[in-house]
Amino acid sequence: MLVITCPYCQEAREEEEFSYAGEAYIARPAVPEEADDATWGDYVFHRKNPRGWHWEQWQHVAGCRKVFAVKRHTVTYEIAGSWTLADGKALYLKEQA
């Protein structure tokens, strides 16, 4: 079981208080009707599934119900940190750049 820090409750909590909410920072096409089937299909279905660091969303369902970003290693389960979605996004974009 993971131990995840909720950036809102500002405390490390056991995994059972959270539910996984998918890969973080997937951009919904701004004008979906202009996206072709392949682009839209990629957005709906394709996920990164890396062996290594992964940016993901967790929701503190048994706590404050907030969704936040977690950077987690899929092999070692190490968690580099957790951030509000806005704070995490800045870091995420910097990493992607």
Partner: peptide, 10 residues
Amino acid sequence: SWLERWHQTE
């Protein structure tokens, strides 16, 4: 949860 997620993330 679905409502919260879309509101908070998108």
